[in-house]
Design a protein around this nucleic acid. Sequence first.
DNA 1: TTTCACCTTCCTAACGGTCGTTAGGATATA
DNA 2: TATATCCTAACGACCGTTAGGAAGGTGAAA
Lengths: 192, 192
Amino acid sequence: MKADHILQTAVGHFAKEGFEGASLSKIAEEVGIKKPSIYAHYKGKDDLFLSALQYSLNTQKSHLAAYFNSVRDEPLESILYGYFNWFAKESQDNERMNFILRVAYFPPLRLEKEVGEFFNPFFDSMHRHLTRLLRERDRQEKVLHSEDFSNAALAYLTVTEGTMTELVYSGMDRYESRLQAVWPIFWRGLRK
Amino acid sequence: MKADHILQTAVGHFAKEGFEGASLSKIAEEVGIKKPSIYAHYKGKDDLFLSALQYSLNTQKSHLAAYFNSVRDEPLESILYGYFNWFAKESQDNERMNFILRVAYFPPLRLEKEVGEFFNPFFDSMHRHLTRLLRERDRQEKVLHSEDFSNAALAYLTVTEGTMTELVYSGMDRYESRLQAVWPIFWRGLRK
DNA sequence: TTTCACCTTCCTAACGGTCGTTAGGATATA
DNA sequence: TATATCCTAACGACCGTTAGGAAGGTGAAA
């Protein structure tokens, strides 16, 4: 489908150049069509952008669910630590993660409200999911220091986002060394 | 000085709209001059942007030094935790921090090299400074669990950047709750 | 003290270029 | 026949930038 091809290409351009920096001409050129042809599939730049965002968040959501499902029998530490490697690999494969992070932190001002309405449920469900995971796993493993699972989940999310942004900013090497630095300390603070 | 007024205004615009999104017309309008008058003070948009970045990093550097100097007799935990509150207040006062973070993570592609040459020394000196602080303070307090001060500093930087980006993205309220969640865990992992 | 050249700062006007978007028509598909 | 997809052409708006000149201040020469 051509509409999908346009959308995939747009994700890459929005990720690298931002909303204002990305241009419909260049997106069309990479797809192999002319600029006005985009309007046969999307109402305009805003529509393309929000479609790309919705698609990216949905894809991310289902990939996330698949990851957590695939490791559900492993020990809690493996699950939490493995997640870092998982999204490092994910963000190498394509630019969806990069796009999501950029839009999350620096949305186009005009679309701030719409963007927030996509993101807040996403983060909230992430937070809820993690809280439940910690609670259920701790019932079996009795490995966590505190029973405030909600705050532990929030702290974990903060650390993942800190390292994720590092990955986006300065690449895999510095990301790896940050992860090696932060994980032992953080896990030591988390466990019994 | 008018050049300074232009620069200060530009920092705010670049922070909110990004490099591509910011427009010289609007900057000039807010300053109270016409667009071409900017060219009496700066060679062009690139020059204004890089000047704003250099100014912001220098200011940030000296504010940072002043903070760490003002708390140098407090216990290590106060210094480290107090830093979170310090930069929260700093970023409320003006948009310099916001501008710095945005440029760090998503520089204009064309100026990526120049931007990196400003940032890498900044982060490296931050890392060195923190490593030394941890080592010297631990010699007195014997409070840290590990003697790998360099990695501890890197981990601390990761956590601060994670919460900082949260501050930029979703404001003071969510920042506070993230900080309350992450600090006890992180400090527990760091101390003896 | 006056004059004159120079420099800075700001202006209006306009440049070429790119932007997102629309109109209208060709072609193929159903 | 109707609909979807692509095209060329062109729209108005805004972009960063430059040309050229007015106003004002500075400082040296007459």
